[in-house]
Design a protein around this nucleic acid. Structure first.
Length: 417
RNA sequence: GGAGAGAUGGCCGAGUGGACGAAGGCGCACGACUCGAAAUCGUGUAGGCGGCAACGUCUCGGGGGUUCGAAUCCCUCUCUCUCCGCCA
Protein backbone atom coordinates (compact mmCIF):
# COMPACT_ATOMS: atom_id res chain seq x y z
CA UNK A 1 0.00 0.00 0.00
CA UNK A 2 1.02 3.56 -0.50
CA UNK A 3 2.45 5.48 2.43
CA UNK A 4 -0.46 7.64 3.65
CA UNK A 5 1.97 10.46 4.33
CA UNK A 6 3.05 10.41 0.72
CA UNK A 7 -0.56 10.84 -0.37
CA UNK A 8 -1.13 13.62 2.10
CA UNK A 9 2.01 15.48 1.15
CA UNK A 10 1.98 14.95 -2.62
CA UNK A 11 -1.64 14.41 -3.57
CA UNK A 12 -1.18 15.82 -7.07
CA UNK A 13 1.74 13.56 -7.84
CA UNK A 14 -0.17 10.47 -6.69
CA UNK A 15 -3.27 11.54 -8.59
CA UNK A 16 -1.29 11.96 -11.80
CA UNK A 17 0.49 8.65 -11.37
CA UNK A 18 -2.64 6.69 -10.60
CA UNK A 19 -4.42 8.21 -13.57
CA UNK A 20 -1.81 6.53 -15.75
CA UNK A 21 -3.17 3.24 -14.46
CA UNK A 22 -6.77 4.26 -15.01
CA UNK A 23 -7.35 3.78 -11.32
CA UNK A 24 -10.97 4.31 -10.27
CA UNK A 25 -10.25 5.35 -6.66
CA UNK A 26 -10.34 9.06 -6.05
CA UNK A 27 -7.37 10.57 -4.26
CA UNK A 28 -9.61 13.37 -3.01
CA UNK A 29 -11.79 10.81 -1.31
CA UNK A 30 -8.74 9.32 0.40
CA UNK A 31 -7.62 12.76 1.55
CA UNK A 32 -11.06 13.58 2.84
CA UNK A 33 -11.36 10.41 4.88
CA UNK A 34 -7.82 10.82 6.15
CA UNK A 35 -8.61 14.31 7.38
CA UNK A 36 -11.78 13.04 9.01
CA UNK A 37 -9.96 10.24 10.71
CA UNK A 38 -7.21 12.46 12.04
CA UNK A 39 -9.48 15.07 13.54
CA UNK A 40 -11.58 12.31 15.10
CA UNK A 41 -8.48 10.87 16.65
CA UNK A 42 -7.51 14.19 18.25
CA UNK A 43 -10.98 14.49 19.69
CA UNK A 44 -11.10 10.88 20.83
CA UNK A 45 -7.69 11.12 22.50
CA UNK A 46 -8.84 14.20 24.39
CA UNK A 47 -12.00 12.54 25.71
CA UNK A 48 -10.17 9.40 26.61
CA UNK A 49 -7.50 11.37 28.43
CA UNK A 50 -10.19 12.90 30.65
CA UNK A 51 -11.59 9.49 31.43
CA UNK A 52 -8.19 8.10 32.28
CA UNK A 53 -7.46 10.96 34.60
CA UNK A 54 -10.78 10.43 36.33
CA UNK A 55 -10.02 6.74 36.78
CA UNK A 56 -6.59 7.51 38.11
CA UNK A 57 -7.99 9.84 40.70
CA UNK A 58 -10.45 7.16 41.78
CA UNK A 59 -7.53 4.81 42.27
CA UNK A 60 -5.81 7.50 44.26
CA UNK A 61 -8.84 7.98 46.53
CA UNK A 62 -9.17 4.26 47.15
CA UNK A 63 -5.54 3.92 48.02
CA UNK A 64 -5.98 6.66 50.57
CA UNK A 65 -8.96 4.81 51.94
CA UNK A 66 -11.40 7.56 51.00
CA UNK A 67 -14.85 7.18 49.55
CA UNK A 68 -14.80 7.24 45.75
CA UNK A 69 -18.42 6.62 44.91
CA UNK A 70 -19.13 10.23 44.03
CA UNK A 71 -16.18 10.31 41.63
CA UNK A 72 -17.27 7.02 40.09
CA UNK A 73 -20.75 8.35 39.54
CA UNK A 74 -19.32 11.32 37.68
CA UNK A 75 -17.56 9.17 35.08
CA UNK A 76 -20.75 7.88 33.50
CA UNK A 77 -21.06 10.59 30.89
CA UNK A 78 -17.36 10.52 30.04
CA UNK A 79 -17.54 6.81 29.53
CA UNK A 80 -20.40 7.10 27.10
CA UNK A 81 -18.63 9.90 25.24
CA UNK A 82 -15.50 7.82 24.93
CA UNK A 83 -17.49 4.91 23.58
CA UNK A 84 -19.13 7.09 20.96
CA UNK A 85 -15.83 8.59 19.88
CA UNK A 86 -14.22 5.17 19.69
CA UNK A 87 -16.96 3.97 17.39
CA UNK A 88 -16.75 7.01 15.14
CA UNK A 89 -12.99 6.84 14.95
CA UNK A 90 -12.79 3.17 14.14
CA UNK A 91 -15.46 3.59 11.50
CA UNK A 92 -13.40 6.33 9.85
CA UNK A 93 -10.23 4.28 10.16
CA UNK A 94 -11.86 1.32 8.52
CA UNK A 95 -13.04 3.44 5.63
CA UNK A 96 -9.57 4.91 5.29
CA UNK A 97 -7.85 1.52 5.34
CA UNK A 98 -10.29 0.11 2.84
CA UNK A 99 -9.58 2.94 0.42
CA UNK A 100 -5.86 2.67 0.95
CA UNK A 101 -5.82 -1.07 0.29
CA UNK A 102 -7.64 -0.52 -2.97
CA UNK A 103 -5.01 1.81 -4.39
CA UNK A 104 -2.58 0.17 -6.78
CA UNK A 105 1.13 0.87 -6.67
CA UNK A 106 1.81 4.18 -8.43
CA UNK A 107 3.77 3.51 -11.60
CA UNK A 108 7.45 4.29 -11.88
CA UNK A 109 8.14 7.41 -13.95
CA UNK A 110 10.29 5.22 -16.17
CA UNK A 111 7.32 3.18 -17.37
CA UNK A 112 6.22 4.22 -20.87
CA UNK A 113 2.67 4.79 -22.11
CA UNK A 114 2.95 1.79 -24.40
CA UNK A 115 4.74 -1.52 -23.85
CA UNK A 116 8.17 -1.04 -25.37
CA UNK A 117 10.70 -3.62 -26.49
CA UNK A 118 14.09 -2.61 -25.14
CA UNK A 119 16.39 -5.23 -26.58
CA UNK A 120 16.63 -8.79 -27.74
CA UNK A 121 19.08 -11.64 -27.44
CA UNK A 122 19.90 -14.64 -29.61
CA UNK A 123 18.94 -15.73 -33.08
CA UNK A 124 15.57 -17.02 -34.18
CA UNK A 125 16.25 -20.48 -35.57
CA UNK A 126 15.85 -21.14 -39.32
CA UNK A 127 14.12 -24.30 -40.51
CA UNK A 128 14.33 -26.11 -43.83
CA UNK A 129 10.92 -27.61 -43.07
CA UNK A 130 7.63 -26.25 -41.82
CA UNK A 131 8.01 -26.02 -38.01
CA UNK A 132 5.20 -27.59 -36.00
CA UNK A 133 3.51 -25.99 -33.07
CA UNK A 134 3.98 -27.40 -29.58
CA UNK A 135 0.58 -29.02 -29.50
CA UNK A 136 1.41 -31.32 -32.40
CA UNK A 137 4.83 -32.02 -30.97
CA UNK A 138 3.42 -32.86 -27.55
CA UNK A 139 0.82 -35.18 -29.00
CA UNK A 140 3.10 -36.88 -31.48
CA UNK A 141 5.89 -37.40 -28.95
CA UNK A 142 3.54 -38.33 -26.10
CA UNK A 143 4.82 -35.54 -23.85
CA UNK A 144 1.48 -34.18 -22.68
CA UNK A 145 -1.87 -35.94 -22.41
CA UNK A 146 -4.45 -33.21 -22.89
CA UNK A 147 -7.34 -35.65 -23.27
CA UNK A 148 -6.62 -37.28 -19.93
CA UNK A 149 -6.10 -33.90 -18.21
CA UNK A 150 -9.44 -32.68 -19.53
CA UNK A 151 -11.40 -35.70 -18.39
CA UNK A 152 -9.63 -35.85 -15.06
CA UNK A 153 -9.55 -32.14 -14.12
CA UNK A 154 -11.27 -30.22 -16.89
CA UNK A 155 -10.48 -28.00 -19.82
CA UNK A 156 -7.24 -26.04 -19.75
CA UNK A 157 -5.26 -28.44 -17.65
CA UNK A 158 -2.16 -30.28 -18.74
CA UNK A 159 -0.83 -33.67 -17.71
CA UNK A 160 2.78 -34.25 -18.62
CA UNK A 161 3.58 -37.84 -19.42
CA UNK A 162 6.73 -39.88 -19.91
CA UNK A 163 9.51 -37.75 -21.34
CA UNK A 164 7.34 -34.67 -20.94
CA UNK A 165 7.09 -35.26 -17.19
CA UNK A 166 10.80 -35.90 -17.13
CA UNK A 167 11.44 -32.63 -18.95
CA UNK A 168 9.49 -30.65 -16.34
CA UNK A 169 11.45 -32.31 -13.57
CA UNK A 170 14.71 -31.55 -15.37
CA UNK A 171 13.75 -27.91 -15.78
CA UNK A 172 12.91 -27.63 -12.10
CA UNK A 173 16.32 -28.91 -11.06
CA UNK A 174 18.10 -26.96 -13.75
CA UNK A 175 16.55 -23.63 -12.74
CA UNK A 176 16.80 -24.17 -9.00
CA UNK A 177 20.42 -25.26 -9.27
CA UNK A 178 21.22 -22.21 -11.32
CA UNK A 179 19.56 -19.75 -8.96
CA UNK A 180 20.78 -21.33 -5.74
CA UNK A 181 24.31 -22.30 -6.73
CA UNK A 182 25.18 -19.57 -9.22
CA UNK A 183 22.93 -16.69 -8.22
CA UNK A 184 22.90 -17.07 -4.45
CA UNK A 185 19.20 -17.52 -3.74
CA UNK A 186 17.91 -19.41 -0.73
CA UNK A 187 15.59 -22.20 -1.81
CA UNK A 188 12.15 -22.58 -0.24
CA UNK A 189 9.39 -25.04 -0.82
CA UNK A 190 6.30 -23.28 0.53
CA UNK A 191 2.64 -24.28 0.83
CA UNK A 192 0.60 -23.56 -2.26
CA UNK A 193 -2.41 -22.73 -0.11
CA UNK A 194 -2.47 -19.38 1.60
CA UNK A 195 -4.73 -17.31 3.78
CA UNK A 196 -6.60 -14.36 2.34
CA UNK A 197 -4.40 -12.07 4.41
CA UNK A 198 -1.26 -13.34 2.71
CA UNK A 199 -2.76 -13.20 -0.74
CA UNK A 200 -3.98 -9.69 -0.05
CA UNK A 201 -0.59 -8.55 1.17
CA UNK A 202 0.86 -9.61 -2.14
CA UNK A 203 -1.81 -7.54 -3.90
CA UNK A 204 -3.44 -10.46 -5.63
CA UNK A 205 -6.81 -10.40 -3.94
CA UNK A 206 -7.52 -7.38 -6.12
CA UNK A 207 -8.28 -9.97 -8.79
CA UNK A 208 -10.16 -12.38 -6.61
CA UNK A 209 -12.17 -13.70 -9.53
CA UNK A 210 -8.91 -15.15 -10.83
CA UNK A 211 -8.18 -17.10 -7.67
CA UNK A 212 -9.17 -20.62 -6.75
CA UNK A 213 -10.77 -20.61 -3.29
CA UNK A 214 -11.40 -23.70 -1.17
CA UNK A 215 -14.90 -24.66 -0.14
CA UNK A 216 -14.31 -25.74 3.45
CA UNK A 217 -11.42 -23.53 4.48
CA UNK A 218 -10.63 -19.84 4.12
CA UNK A 219 -7.67 -20.60 1.89
CA UNK A 220 -6.66 -19.80 -1.65
CA UNK A 221 -4.49 -21.64 -4.13
CA UNK A 222 -1.64 -19.29 -4.87
CA UNK A 223 -1.42 -17.82 -8.39
CA UNK A 224 2.37 -17.58 -8.12
CA UNK A 225 5.00 -18.44 -5.53
CA UNK A 226 5.55 -14.68 -5.26
CA UNK A 227 2.66 -14.87 -2.78
CA UNK A 228 4.59 -17.29 -0.60
CA UNK A 229 7.98 -15.67 -0.90
CA UNK A 230 7.05 -12.04 -0.29
CA UNK A 231 5.37 -13.12 2.95
CA UNK A 232 8.40 -14.98 4.23
CA UNK A 233 9.23 -12.15 6.64
CA UNK A 234 5.70 -10.97 7.35
CA UNK A 235 5.48 -9.19 10.68
CA UNK A 236 9.24 -9.29 11.08
CA UNK A 237 12.08 -6.83 11.11
CA UNK A 238 14.96 -7.37 8.73
CA UNK A 239 18.29 -5.85 9.71
CA UNK A 240 19.87 -3.60 7.12
CA UNK A 241 23.06 -5.64 7.15
CA UNK A 242 21.10 -8.78 6.26
CA UNK A 243 19.95 -7.29 2.96
CA UNK A 244 19.47 -8.30 0.28
CA UNK A 245 17.44 -11.40 1.22
CA UNK A 246 17.05 -13.56 -1.86
CA UNK A 247 14.59 -16.44 -2.13
CA UNK A 248 13.61 -18.83 -4.84
CA UNK A 249 10.92 -21.46 -4.99
CA UNK A 250 9.47 -23.90 -7.45
CA UNK A 251 5.73 -24.34 -7.08
CA UNK A 252 2.62 -25.06 -9.00
CA UNK A 253 0.61 -21.91 -9.65
CA UNK A 254 -3.15 -21.80 -9.99
CA UNK A 255 -5.20 -19.35 -11.99
CA UNK A 256 -8.83 -19.53 -12.97
CA UNK A 257 -8.15 -17.38 -16.03
CA UNK A 258 -11.70 -16.11 -15.76
CA UNK A 259 -12.80 -14.20 -18.79
CA UNK A 260 -10.03 -15.41 -21.04
CA UNK A 261 -12.06 -18.11 -22.77
CA UNK A 262 -11.97 -17.98 -26.50
CA UNK A 263 -8.35 -16.89 -26.60
CA UNK A 264 -5.50 -19.36 -26.73
CA UNK A 265 -7.49 -22.12 -25.13
CA UNK A 266 -5.48 -24.99 -26.55
CA UNK A 267 -2.17 -26.38 -25.50
CA UNK A 268 0.16 -25.27 -22.76
CA UNK A 269 0.00 -21.54 -23.37
CA UNK A 270 -2.59 -20.58 -20.78
CA UNK A 271 -3.57 -23.26 -18.32
CA UNK A 272 -5.13 -23.31 -14.84
CA UNK A 273 -2.21 -24.99 -13.15
CA UNK A 274 1.32 -24.37 -14.20
CA UNK A 275 4.78 -24.66 -12.74
CA UNK A 276 7.13 -21.82 -12.19
CA UNK A 277 10.39 -20.98 -10.48
CA UNK A 278 10.14 -17.62 -8.78
CA UNK A 279 12.79 -15.19 -7.58
CA UNK A 280 12.17 -12.65 -4.84
CA UNK A 281 14.52 -10.14 -3.28
CA UNK A 282 14.07 -7.95 -0.22
CA UNK A 283 16.33 -4.95 -0.70
CA UNK A 284 17.43 -1.63 0.67
CA UNK A 285 15.14 1.06 -0.79
CA UNK A 286 18.09 2.78 -2.38
CA UNK A 287 19.38 -0.36 -4.01
CA UNK A 288 16.34 -1.65 -5.82
CA UNK A 289 17.80 -0.95 -9.27
CA UNK A 290 20.67 -3.31 -8.62
CA UNK A 291 18.25 -6.00 -7.50
CA UNK A 292 15.96 -5.37 -10.44
CA UNK A 293 18.81 -5.72 -12.91
CA UNK A 294 20.02 -8.80 -11.12
CA UNK A 295 16.68 -10.60 -11.19
CA UNK A 296 16.27 -9.72 -14.85
CA UNK A 297 19.76 -11.04 -15.56
CA UNK A 298 19.00 -14.20 -13.57
CA UNK A 299 15.89 -14.85 -15.64
CA UNK A 300 17.68 -14.12 -18.90
CA UNK A 301 20.43 -16.53 -17.90
CA UNK A 302 17.97 -19.41 -18.03
CA UNK A 303 17.13 -18.59 -21.63
CA UNK A 304 20.74 -17.95 -22.57
CA UNK A 305 21.84 -21.32 -21.20
CA UNK A 306 19.05 -22.95 -23.17
CA UNK A 307 20.05 -20.86 -26.16
CA UNK A 308 16.57 -19.50 -26.78
CA UNK A 309 16.03 -16.15 -28.46
CA UNK A 310 14.17 -13.64 -26.33
CA UNK A 311 13.26 -10.00 -26.06
CA UNK A 312 12.98 -7.76 -23.04
CA UNK A 313 10.22 -5.20 -22.85
CA UNK A 314 9.14 -2.61 -20.35
CA UNK A 315 5.44 -2.58 -19.59
CA UNK A 316 3.10 0.37 -19.52
CA UNK A 317 1.33 1.15 -16.23
CA UNK A 318 -1.94 -0.33 -17.48
CA UNK A 319 -0.26 -3.66 -18.22
CA UNK A 320 1.72 -4.08 -15.03
CA UNK A 321 0.23 -5.79 -12.00
CA UNK A 322 -1.67 -3.99 -9.23
CA UNK A 323 1.24 -4.35 -6.80
CA UNK A 324 4.04 -3.45 -9.23
CA UNK A 325 5.42 0.00 -9.94
CA UNK A 326 7.72 -1.11 -12.73
CA UNK A 327 7.69 -4.32 -14.74
CA UNK A 328 9.91 -5.77 -17.42
CA UNK A 329 8.73 -8.82 -19.31
CA UNK A 330 10.99 -11.37 -20.92
CA UNK A 331 9.43 -12.97 -23.99
CA UNK A 332 10.88 -16.09 -25.54
CA UNK A 333 10.60 -16.79 -29.25
CA UNK A 334 8.32 -19.65 -30.27
CA UNK A 335 8.67 -20.40 -33.99
CA UNK A 336 5.74 -22.86 -34.17
CA UNK A 337 3.40 -20.29 -32.72
CA UNK A 338 5.28 -17.58 -34.62
CA UNK A 339 5.10 -15.43 -31.49
CA UNK A 340 6.96 -14.10 -28.49
CA UNK A 341 5.77 -15.76 -25.27
CA UNK A 342 6.03 -14.15 -21.88
CA UNK A 343 8.11 -16.46 -19.68
CA UNK A 344 9.20 -14.00 -17.05
CA UNK A 345 7.91 -10.85 -15.51
CA UNK A 346 10.25 -8.87 -13.29
CA UNK A 347 8.66 -6.29 -11.03
CA UNK A 348 9.66 -3.72 -8.49
CA UNK A 349 6.91 -3.50 -5.90
CA UNK A 350 8.84 -1.00 -3.79
CA UNK A 351 7.46 -0.95 -0.22
CA UNK A 352 3.92 -1.66 -1.43
CA UNK A 353 3.88 -5.26 -0.24
CA UNK A 354 6.15 -4.84 2.78
CA UNK A 355 3.77 -2.21 4.14
CA UNK A 356 0.88 -4.58 3.66
CA UNK A 357 2.45 -7.54 5.40
CA UNK A 358 4.41 -5.47 7.92
CA UNK A 359 7.85 -6.57 6.89
CA UNK A 360 10.05 -3.87 8.27
CA UNK A 361 13.59 -2.81 7.83
CA UNK A 362 15.81 -1.85 10.76
CA UNK A 363 18.46 0.49 9.47
CA UNK A 364 21.89 0.35 11.07
CA UNK A 365 21.31 3.80 12.61
CA UNK A 366 18.39 2.25 14.50
CA UNK A 367 15.61 3.83 12.48
CA UNK A 368 12.81 1.81 10.99
CA UNK A 369 11.53 1.62 7.44
CA UNK A 370 10.27 -0.83 4.89
CA UNK A 371 12.38 -2.95 2.54
CA UNK A 372 11.63 -2.90 -1.16
CA UNK A 373 10.41 -6.21 -2.50
CA UNK A 374 11.12 -7.26 -6.07
CA UNK A 375 10.08 -10.40 -7.85
CA UNK A 376 10.60 -12.12 -11.14
CA UNK A 377 9.92 -15.47 -12.71
CA UNK A 378 12.91 -17.53 -13.38
CA UNK A 379 11.04 -18.87 -15.35
CA UNK A 380 7.50 -20.13 -16.09
CA UNK A 381 7.64 -23.65 -17.41
CA UNK A 382 4.79 -24.42 -19.76
CA UNK A 383 5.87 -21.60 -22.04
CA UNK A 384 9.50 -22.55 -21.69
CA UNK A 385 8.51 -26.06 -22.73
CA UNK A 386 6.69 -24.63 -25.73
CA UNK A 387 9.81 -22.69 -26.69
CA UNK A 388 12.14 -25.65 -26.23
CA UNK A 389 9.96 -27.97 -28.28
CA UNK A 390 9.37 -25.51 -31.07
CA UNK A 391 12.94 -24.20 -31.27
CA UNK A 392 14.66 -27.57 -30.96
CA UNK A 393 12.38 -29.61 -33.22
CA UNK A 394 14.01 -31.67 -35.94
CA UNK A 395 12.88 -32.53 -39.45
CA UNK A 396 12.16 -36.10 -38.36
CA UNK A 397 9.66 -34.91 -35.73
CA UNK A 398 11.93 -35.46 -32.74
CA UNK A 399 13.19 -32.73 -30.45
CA UNK A 400 16.81 -32.20 -29.58
CA UNK A 401 17.43 -31.73 -25.86
CA UNK A 402 19.25 -28.44 -25.09
CA UNK A 403 22.73 -29.29 -23.91
CA UNK A 404 22.34 -27.52 -20.61
CA UNK A 405 19.44 -29.83 -19.77
CA UNK A 406 21.10 -33.11 -20.71
CA UNK A 407 22.78 -33.63 -17.33
CA UNK A 408 19.29 -33.53 -15.87
CA UNK A 409 17.94 -35.99 -18.44
CA UNK A 410 20.47 -38.80 -18.03
CA UNK A 411 22.37 -37.42 -20.99
CA UNK A 412 19.43 -37.92 -23.33
CA UNK A 413 19.97 -36.10 -26.64
CA UNK A 414 16.57 -36.35 -28.28
CA UNK A 415 12.97 -36.57 -27.15
CA UNK A 416 11.11 -39.20 -29.15
CA UNK A 417 14.14 -41.11 -30.26
C1' G B 1 -10.82 -34.91 15.29
C1' G B 2 -10.71 -35.59 21.23
C1' A B 3 -8.23 -34.02 26.16
C1' G B 4 -5.04 -30.71 28.52
C1' A B 5 -1.20 -26.66 28.98
C1' G B 6 0.58 -22.24 27.19
C1' A B 7 1.45 -17.16 24.26
C1' U B 8 4.27 -10.84 28.41
C1' G B 9 9.70 -6.14 25.52
C1' G B 10 15.70 -8.09 21.11
C1' C B 11 15.88 -12.70 24.47
C1' C B 12 14.74 -15.10 29.37
C1' G B 13 11.19 -14.24 32.96
C1' A B 14 7.92 -11.81 37.14
C1' G B 15 3.29 -9.84 37.42
C1' U B 16 -4.26 -12.61 39.16
C1' G B 17 -8.20 -5.53 39.29
C1' G B 18 -5.64 0.77 40.51
C1' A B 19 0.99 4.09 41.31
C1' C B 20 2.20 -1.25 35.05
C1' G B 21 4.48 0.26 28.81
C1' A B 22 5.27 -3.46 32.52
C1' A B 23 10.03 -6.02 38.32
C1' G B 24 14.53 -8.73 37.75
C1' G B 25 18.12 -10.84 34.58
C1' C B 26 20.60 -11.35 29.80
C1' G B 27 21.87 -8.79 25.54
C1' C B 28 22.85 -4.05 23.31
C1' A B 29 24.45 1.37 23.42
C1' C B 30 26.86 5.26 25.89
C1' G B 31 29.78 6.92 30.10
C1' A B 32 33.24 6.07 34.42
C1' C B 33 37.47 3.15 36.01
C1' U B 34 41.95 1.18 32.80
C1' C B 35 47.92 2.16 29.04
C1' G B 36 44.14 -1.00 26.79
C1' A B 37 40.78 -4.98 27.78
C1' A B 38 38.06 -8.18 31.18
C1' A B 39 35.55 -7.54 35.61
C1' U B 40 32.92 -3.70 38.16
C1' C B 41 29.85 0.65 38.61
C1' G B 42 26.49 4.38 36.39
C1' U B 43 22.98 5.84 32.54
C1' G B 44 19.91 4.53 28.61
C1' U B 45 17.54 0.90 25.99
C1' A B 46 9.70 -1.30 21.90
C1' G B 47 6.48 0.18 18.41
C1' G B 48 1.79 2.28 15.93
C1' C B 49 -1.29 6.62 15.38
C1' G B 50 -2.05 12.05 15.96
C1' G B 51 0.88 16.60 16.84
C1' C B 52 6.02 21.61 14.53
C1' A B 53 6.67 20.41 19.49
C1' A B 54 5.40 19.82 24.51
C1' C B 55 2.54 15.95 24.76
C1' G B 56 -1.67 12.72 24.08
C1' U B 57 -3.40 7.96 22.77
C1' C B 58 -3.12 2.75 21.54
C1' U B 59 -0.49 -1.94 21.97
C1' C B 60 1.33 -7.69 27.29
C1' G B 61 -0.79 -13.41 20.54
C1' G B 62 -5.74 -11.25 17.57
C1' G B 63 -10.88 -9.67 18.26
C1' G B 64 -14.99 -8.73 21.57
C1' G B 65 -16.99 -8.06 26.64
C1' U B 66 -17.28 -6.83 32.22
C1' U B 67 -15.43 -2.46 35.16
C1' C B 68 -14.79 4.35 36.94
C1' G B 69 -10.19 1.45 35.84
C1' A B 70 -7.81 -4.89 32.65
C1' A B 71 -1.31 -7.83 31.27
C1' U B 72 -4.60 -9.50 35.36
C1' C B 73 -11.74 -11.41 35.12
C1' C B 74 -15.26 -13.45 31.02
C1' C B 75 -16.20 -14.98 25.71
C1' U B 76 -14.05 -16.04 21.08
C1' C B 77 -10.30 -16.81 17.32
C1' U B 78 -5.26 -17.93 15.91
C1' C B 79 -0.73 -20.14 16.96
C1' U B 80 2.68 -23.33 20.00
C1' C B 81 3.49 -27.63 23.22
C1' U B 82 1.95 -32.62 25.55
C1' C B 83 -1.20 -37.01 25.26
C1' C B 84 -4.87 -39.87 22.29
C1' G B 85 -6.91 -40.86 17.34
C1' C B 86 -5.77 -40.72 11.99
C1' C B 87 -2.51 -40.83 8.45
C1' A B 88 2.36 -39.93 4.15
Amino acid sequence: MIDPKRIRENPDEIRTLLERRKCPVSVDEVLKVDEERRSLQVERDRVRHELKQASDSIGQLKREGKDASAAIARTGELKQKTKDMDARLSEAEERFEALLWQLPNPPDPESPDEDTVLRSWGEKPGFDFEPKDHISLCEELGLVDFRYAASYAGARFAAYTGEGARLIRALESFCLDLHTKEHGYCELHPPVLARAESVNAAGQLSKIEDMYALKNDPLYLIPTSETALINYHMGQEIKEQDLPCKYTAYTSCFRREAGTYGAETRGLFRIHQFEKVELVQFTHPERWREAFREILTNAEKVLQLLNLAYQVKVLSPTESAFQASLTYDVDVWAPGADAWLEVSSVSNCRDFQSRRNKTRLRFSDGSLGYPFILNGSGTAFPRLVIAILENYQQADGTVRVPEALRPYMDGKEYLGR
